[in-house]
Computed example of a mutant assay.
Amino acid sequence: MAGRSASAWTLRTAPTMLTGLLSTLFVSVLLREVARGGSDSPLVERILRLWGWSWLIPAGARVRVEGREHIQPGQSYVVVSNHQSNLDAMVHLAALGLPLRIMAKRELFALPILGPALRAIGMVEVDRARPDVVAIDSAARDVLASGRSLLVYPEATTSSDGTIHRFKSGAFAIAIGQGVPVLPVVLHGTRLIWAPGGNAIRGGQVRVVITEPITTGHLTPSDIAGLRDDVRAVLSSTLAVVSGAHI
Rank of each mutant, 00 (worst) to 15 (best):
residue 169 S to T: 15
residue 31 L to P: 01
residue 170 G to C: 05
residue 236 S to N: 07
residue 192 L to K: 11
residue 143 V to S: 03
residue 179 G to F: 00
residue 134 V to H: 13
residue 10 T to Y: 10
residue 142 D to L: 10
residue 211 T to K: 05
residue 40 D to K: 12
residue 10 T to Q: 13
residue 194 W to Y: 12
residue 240 A to K: 09
residue 105 K to W: 02
residue 175 A to N: 04
residue 174 I to V: 15
residue 235 L to V: 09
residue 109 F to G: 03
residue 79 V to K: 01
residue 28 S to R: 00
residue 140 A to R: 04
residue 48 L to Y: 00
residue 147 G to Y: 01
residue 217 G to Q: 15
residue 136 I to S: 06
residue 9 W to K: 12
residue 209 V to N: 01
residue 213 P to W: 06
residue 36 R to F: 10
residue 163 T to N: 12
residue 120 A to E: 03
residue 226 G to F: 00
residue 149 S to I: 05
residue 244 G to A: 12
residue 147 G to S: 11
residue 149 S to L: 08
residue 73 P to W: 01
residue 220 T to Y: 00
residue 154 P to R: 04
residue 56 L to D: 00
residue 225 A to N: 11
residue 72 Q to C: 03
residue 71 I to D: 10
residue 25 L to D: 02
residue 189 G to N: 05
residue 95 A to S: 15
residue 62 R to N: 01
residue 23 S to D: 12
residue 36 R to P: 07
residue 105 K to V: 08
residue 20 G to I: 00
residue 99 P to R: 10
residue 194 W to Q: 10
residue 120 A to P: 02
residue 234 V to L: 14
residue 129 A to N: 12
residue 173 A to M: 10
residue 218 H to K: 12
residue 216 T to I: 08
residue 147 G to F: 01
residue 58 P to R: 03
residue 161 D to K: 06
residue 165 H to K: 14
residue 106 R to S: 15
residue 196 P to Y: 06
residue 115 G to V: 10
residue 32 R to S: 10
residue 89 A to Q: 02
residue 229 D to S: 13
residue 245 A to K: 05
residue 94 A to E: 03
residue 47 I to M: 13
residue 197 G to P: 03
residue 206 V to G: 02
residue 135 A to H: 08
residue 247 I to N: 06
residue 209 V to F: 01
residue 47 I to R: 06
residue 83 H to P: 01
residue 70 H to E: 13
residue 211 T to Y: 00
residue 1 M to C: 10
residue 246 H to W: 02
residue 131 P to G: 11
residue 244 G to N: 12
residue 17 M to I: 15
residue 130 R to K: 14
residue 73 P to Y: 04
residue 232 R to C: 03
residue 229 D to Y: 01
residue 167 F to P: 03
residue 91 V to M: 05
residue 168 K to N: 08
residue 103 M to Q: 04
residue 197 G to R: 08
residue 195 A to C: 08
residue 108 L to P: 01
residue 152 V to D: 02
residue 5 S to F: 01
residue 161 D to L: 09
residue 218 H to G: 06
residue 114 L to G: 09
residue 213 P to C: 08
residue 57 I to Q: 05
residue 112 P to Y: 10
residue 54 S to T: 07
residue 55 W to I: 02
residue 169 S to P: 06
residue 92 H to S: 11
residue 104 A to G: 13
residue 104 A to H: 05
residue 183 L to K: 02
residue 51 W to C: 06
residue 189 G to F: 01
residue 76 S to D: 04
residue 116 P to S: 13
residue 144 L to D: 04
residue 32 R to N: 14
residue 62 R to C: 00
residue 70 H to M: 06
residue 165 H to Q: 15
residue 169 S to M: 11
residue 101 R to H: 09
residue 6 A to P: 00
residue 243 S to C: 09
residue 116 P to V: 13
residue 112 P to H: 11
residue 127 D to Q: 11
residue 179 G to H: 05
residue 14 A to Q: 08
residue 204 G to V: 01
residue 64 R to L: 12
residue 150 L to P: 01
residue 200 A to N: 06
residue 208 V to C: 05
residue 10 T to M: 12
residue 166 R to M: 08
residue 69 E to K: 13
residue 208 V to A: 03
residue 189 G to S: 10
residue 105 K to T: 08
residue 24 T to H: 04
residue 117 A to G: 10
residue 117 A to P: 02
residue 150 L to C: 10
residue 237 S to C: 05
residue 99 P to L: 12
residue 129 A to V: 15
residue 115 G to H: 09
residue 1 M to G: 15
residue 72 Q to A: 13
residue 164 I to E: 02
residue 170 G to I: 02
residue 16 T to K: 06
residue 237 S to L: 07
residue 13 T to C: 07
residue 55 W to R: 01
residue 108 L to D: 06
